[in-house]
């Protein structure tokens, strides 16, 4: 049996806005095993973002249990959460969030700076390896504004991979990209998944969900659908089948 990465039991999260209490998550339970590629779907207001923040250890649940790679997140301090994010989660954001005027290599090295287990000498080597694995081995010294959107997102993915996390957490990672580049990024995610990476992908695009092996749909703070995708599309094939844009 595959190792359990996420174990979520009756998770609740409520916010107090003025005198009213808003229940963003009203009791969510699911598990994710190592090697899965899960998309979390939902329209705005479904509790998707709240879910993402909790999964990313940026926020803590009001009630219920969240085990990440066997660690109970509840009761951890701010510093311990930071360490957990550093070691176990690789974030990929919609707007890439690369440091401006900073080379791709240094951007990828960033998580290693906060990881005391990686000696300084190994940082560069690891960062180069991560950039090579996303196909940017020849762009090490480029700064973000010398890179296309797709390339920037690849740098961000390399940054997410560099600390060898148990899970990659993507937040609308293709939201800012045109469909062709999106498929390229999805192909990269699929490739990483076949190499054994666990991926949790939060999105509102149903099209993107077809590339994952499982889709969880949230609505009004509850899971309304949790289905295995029997017919996973290959992003690589879709990309190959696309007509080449004449403008390019």
């Amino acid at each position: 049996m595959a190792k359990r990465i996420l174990d979520i039991i009756d998770l609740k999260r409520s916010f107090t806005v003025g005198s009213e209490t808003v229940h963003a998550l009203k009791g969510v339970s699911f598990t994710v095993d190592a090697g899965e590629f899960v998309t979390i779907m939902g329209s705005s207001g479904s509790g998707k973002t709240t879910m993402l923040n909790i999964l990313g250890c940026l926020d803590k649940p009001t009630d219920g249990q969240y085990l990440l790679d066997g660690v109970d997140v509840k009761g951890l301090s701010r510093d311990e959460l930071a360490k957990l994010r550093n070691r176990k989660i690789g974030f990929v954001f919609q707007s890439y969030n690369l440091l401006a005027r900073t080379s791709a290599l240094e951007n990828v090295e960033l998580p290693l700076l906060y990881n005391n287990d990686v000696p300084a000498e190994e940082r560069k080597e690891k960062a180069i390896k991560a950039l090579e694995s996303v196909g940017l081995g020849d762009r090490l010294d480029h700064v973000p504004n010398q890179l296309s959107g797709g390339q920037q997102q690849r740098v961000a993915i390399a940054r997410a991979l560099v600390n060898e996390p148990v899970m990659i957490l993507a937040d609308e990672a293709t939201g800012n990209l045109d469909s062709r580049t999106s498929y390229g990024i999805m192909a990269l995610f699929q490739e990483l998944n076949t190499k054994g990476k666990t991926i949790v992908f939060v999105t509102h695009e149903p099209d993107i969900a077809t590339f994952s092996s499982r889709t969880i749909t949230l609505k009004d703070g509850r899971i309304v659908k949790d289905v295995k995708n029997e017919n996973v599309r290959s992003a690589k094939e879709v990309l190959a089948a696309m007509p080449v844009d004449k403008d390019e």
């Binding site: 940026l58 550093n86 070691r87 969030n97 960033l110 998580p111 906060y114 990881n115 940054r159």
Partner: peptide, 16 residues
């Protein structure tokens, strides 16, 4: 602020 948010998300502690 955004840079700080990113650094925190990838594991920077308040102290860092």
């Amino acid at each position: 602020t955004k840079e700080i948010g990113l650094r925190m998300a990838i594991g920077a502690r308040g102290r860092d």
